[in-house]
């Protein structure tokens, strides 16, 4: 495929695929839970963007895109935010109780902080 044949829907679709990959990598590989949460949001953004490319390709009848996937993405963004907020609350509670912000085993020589 030459660059000239690349329309913007395909371009953003590929971008979404790349973002999903990067987000997934952060979720798997990063030890810090907060960073994993950022990765989770990037992963979601990538998937939404692939879906946005689908919507854009469905442009018809004078609309700039297919409204059905667009509405689903709006719903998805709100649900992703709710999940993030719940995850942040869990993380803060975990941190308050144990003094850790990661699920990795603690490094040798460190004792968990006492509950405040």
């Amino acid at each position: 495929m030459t660059l000239a044949a690349l329309d913007s829907a395909t371009l953003f679709g590929l971008c979404g695929a790349a973002l999903a990959g990067i987000g997934l990598f952060v979720v798997i590989a990063h030890p810090g839970l907060l960073r994993r949460l950022v990765g989770f949001n990037i992963l979601g953004a990538g998937i939404f963007m692939v879906f946005g490319a689908v919507a854009r390709r469905g442009a018809a009848a004078g609309l700039p895109g297919d409204p059905v996937p667009q509405a689903m993405v709006i719903t998805g963004i709100v649900v992703a935010f709710s999940a993030s907020a719940l995850a942040v609350a869990l993380l803060r509670r975990l941190f308050d109780l144990t003094g850790r912000d990661s699920l990795e085993p603690p490094a040798a020589g460190k004792t968990p902080r006492a509950e405040s």
Binding site: M1, T10, G13, L14, G16, A17, A18, A20, G21, I22, L24, G46, V50, A53, V54, R57, G58, A59, A60, A61, G62, L63, G65, D66, P67, V68
Partner: peptide, 24 residues
């Protein structure tokens, strides 16, 4: 995973299915 998604993007059917007309 990214590669698979990218291939899926490149393999989208053409003409694209759309619900724009029924929605309007």
């Amino acid at each position: 995973v990214a590669l698979g998604l990218g291939l899926a993007v490149l393999a989208f059917p053409s003409p694209a299915p759309t619900l724009a007309q029924p929605a309007l």
